[in-house]
Computed example of a mutant assay.
Amino acid sequence: MDHQHILKYIRQVFGSTEFIPLHAPYFGGNEKKYVLDTIDSTFVSSVGAFVNRFEEMMCEITGARFAVATVNGTTALQMALLAAGTQRGDEVITQTLSFVATANAIAHAGATPVFVDVDRDTLGMSPSALATFLREHVHINAQGQPVNKGTGKRIAACVPMHTFGLPCKIDEIAAICEEFHIPLVEDAAESLGSYYKGKHTGTTGLLAAFSFNGNKTVTCGGGGAIVTDDEKLAKKLKHLTTTAKVPHPWEFVHDETGFNFRMPNLNAAMACAQLEQLPRFLQNKRDLADKYASFFEGSPIQFVKEPANAIANYWLNVILMPDGHEKDKFLETSNGSGVMTRPAWRLNHKLPMYANCQTGDLTNSIWLEERIVNIPSSFRPDLQ
């Protein structure tokens, strides 16, 4: 398919001859009102009504019993790993096809990432690749802990990521993790509004992390959330992310090493206004994905549709080019023409700080890295 033909169609869909971003935020609700309300209240930091309301809304949307607001998705994942029992010197299994924040959060928690492959239909962690790695490299010790045979280190958690909002086969992954006594912590940063077999992403594992960065479906500039059904863990996380301060009318008493990771009320105000519009955002983005799917149907370029048994939020729309050369040509042409497109992230195991980490077979990840292109996916306010 001719590249100019694709760019012409994208411009037609967005109704613009100007620069078209990959994913621009849209503020068409109560964002300004709520932020001004916060300023008028003077509660602009981590204590305020909108922080509490944001957590309530995240529970309502995901179906999780508890939510804890954080300053960004990376800190949410780091804290979720610590709450799951990750300790310095442990290992955490994740996928190499992911934004670097996934591996960074593991490192921040004091652990070392171990990378396994993804499936081509979900772009997320492959249950078969996970099972193969565990059966070849992990045994259960006398204390019932999963231990890497080669390194002698404990496997503290497994972190699949719902890539670009496409749910992975999380029920199969959960069953494998249960077999090997490994806590499941979902990186749901990109998948707000996505479901697998009727369950919202992030609600199958012990804990999950969401992101509200400036480029996400719902944004508050910077923000994150941890969700869980475990009340004890939720209370612990709220305490730790608020500098582990013991409640007292005036004294400052902290009972353990805490973190200053609580979401400010200003950000929460914007997040609440954005969450109110989530159904509209999701329907609008699904319409865009449907248009792309029809346009690319029958061409050598594959549009990645939501996998079986899933409802995706289509955060970033994905096409697969025939090969790496074609991908590079399209990226150069599109960005040079004012239509923003992006490749997949460089695989995490290729980054210098993670180059020595253990990996399983990564055939699918390498194949996808050579072909993935994200195309413009913004909310279109003109579409009713």
Rank of each mutant, 00 (worst) to 15 (best):
residue 113 P to T: 01
residue 253 V to Y: 11
residue 347 L to H: 00
residue 358 Q to M: 15
residue 175 A to N: 07
residue 370 E to N: 14
residue 187 D to R: 01
residue 353 M to P: 09
residue 295 F to K: 12
residue 110 G to S: 04
residue 44 V to E: 11
residue 288 L to G: 10
residue 141 N to L: 06
residue 126 S to F: 05
residue 374 N to A: 05
residue 36 L to F: 07
residue 128 S to D: 14
residue 124 G to Y: 00
residue 201 T to M: 15
residue 137 H to N: 15
residue 54 F to N: 11
residue 375 I to K: 06
residue 29 G to P: 02
residue 145 Q to T: 07
residue 209 A to E: 01
residue 357 C to M: 11
residue 283 Q to F: 00
residue 279 P to Q: 06
residue 101 A to K: 12
residue 351 L to V: 03
residue 103 A to P: 05
residue 78 Q to N: 07
residue 264 P to A: 10
residue 46 S to Y: 14
residue 343 P to I: 07
residue 233 L to F: 06
residue 63 G to Q: 07
residue 244 A to R: 09
residue 304 V to P: 10
residue 13 V to A: 13
residue 299 S to C: 11
residue 90 D to Q: 04
residue 254 H to S: 13
residue 368 L to N: 04
residue 149 K to D: 14
residue 115 F to A: 01
residue 326 E to K: 13
residue 209 A to C: 09
residue 366 I to W: 01
residue 234 A to R: 03
residue 381 P to W: 11
residue 121 D to K: 09
residue 101 A to H: 05
residue 286 R to C: 07
residue 76 A to C: 12
residue 8 K to Q: 13
residue 321 M to A: 15
residue 87 Q to G: 02
residue 370 E to L: 03
residue 235 K to M: 12
residue 335 N to P: 10
residue 229 D to T: 04
residue 260 N to D: 15
residue 35 V to W: 06
residue 215 N to R: 12
residue 188 A to Q: 06
residue 356 N to M: 04
residue 59 C to P: 09
residue 340 M to L: 13
residue 345 W to G: 02
residue 141 N to P: 10
residue 146 P to C: 08
residue 132 T to M: 05
residue 182 I to R: 03
residue 190 E to D: 15
residue 140 I to Q: 06
residue 358 Q to H: 11
residue 30 N to L: 13
residue 134 L to T: 07
residue 373 V to F: 03
residue 366 I to P: 00
residue 72 N to T: 11
residue 114 V to Q: 00
residue 133 F to I: 10
residue 59 C to T: 15
residue 37 D to C: 09
residue 25 P to E: 05
residue 248 H to C: 04
residue 286 R to N: 08
residue 339 V to A: 06
residue 121 D to G: 03
residue 3 H to I: 13
residue 83 A to W: 01
residue 269 A to L: 10
residue 306 E to R: 13
residue 34 Y to H: 14
residue 18 E to R: 12
residue 289 A to T: 10
residue 184 L to V: 07
residue 93 I to F: 02
residue 163 T to Y: 13
residue 71 V to F: 02
residue 71 V to E: 09
residue 169 K to M: 11
residue 207 L to T: 14
residue 317 N to P: 09
residue 141 N to S: 08
residue 380 R to Q: 13
residue 119 D to C: 12
residue 266 L to Q: 02
residue 75 T to S: 10
residue 99 F to S: 02
residue 6 I to K: 05
residue 264 P to H: 11
residue 322 P to D: 08
residue 255 D to M: 03
residue 201 T to P: 02
